[in-house]
Design a protein around this nucleic acid. Sequence first.
DNA 1: GCACGAAATGAGAATGGTTCCTATTATCTC
DNA 2: GAGATAATAGGAACCATTCTCATTTCGTGC
Lengths: 143, 143
Amino acid sequence: MQQLERDVKMRLAARGVRLTRGRRLVLDAVATADGPRTASEIHGTLDTVPLSSLYRSLAVLVEAGVFAQHHGADETTRYELAEWLTEHHHHLVCVSCGSISDVTASEDQEAVVGRLVEAFAGSSDFAVSGHRFEIEGRCASCR
Amino acid sequence: MQQLERDVKMRLAARGVRLTRGRRLVLDAVATADGPRTASEIHGTLDTVPLSSLYRSLAVLVEAGVFAQHHGADETTRYELAEWLTEHHHHLVCVSCGSISDVTASEDQEAVVGRLVEAFAGSSDFAVSGHRFEIEGRCASCR
DNA sequence: GCACGAAATGAGAATGGTTCCTATTATCTC
DNA sequence: GAGATAATAGGAACCATTCTCATTTCGTGC
């Protein structure tokens, strides 16, 4: 966690943004989760941070590229660490309860994914910057 | 378009739901689009259908499995024809303007995707029901 | 063709996640 | 430690979406 905070602080500093107490709390809450979290989930674990500040912190951290935003099965936005701070991964999305958990592909699998992405985008005039692979179904507790 | 309306009408009838004028208009608007559309985009092309009715029709058609809901880059919900009414396809999502367009994979490519899905879900206790592959980048008009 | 009951509609109010506003407080620089 | 700037707290505002309920339309049996 130390290393993470240092990396983030540096990145924020490069943009003239501070890593304050509130932002550090939000960062830790998201970093220790095992999948993308909604604002209210985060707020639930952080009762010292008011909602308005939480949303502002989330926006700042997304803006700075520390968090990635994710719009999943339900209509609420979820936040997770950007990929330069974690491993590249994909998602198992539960169509019943909306929860999302992470899966990491092997190097070989990821190479296959990369080739597919190239093939799909190749035909259109589209500048690829990333991809998301989401697997839908029912999680262990909903099936 | 005739065949589509017939298919949908049959599916709705099987659930005791009518294909009314308003629903037919919504169906056509979504069916003729080249990618998922938001409620307000649809409303824009259908000024005889009030928003509340539009949302109700969308809900009915999603419920009946005629439309698929999609939560993309922005936080508004998008709707498109369910896959049994179209080809299975994937999405090119523009991170700049939020527009989404469809790409269809070849049979071989899709087989590769299927194997990846199995591999990713295999390790967890997760009952797969589908997958989505989203490619992010900048569309022709935003790059 | 007509009447009845069920389903669908329209209009506006209500809801809930998210953003904006403003005064106050914390932080950095000198 | 003072001044300037950034960040916070709290609440109001916003907007996509959902709900409510009175009215209308549709399909069925007569």
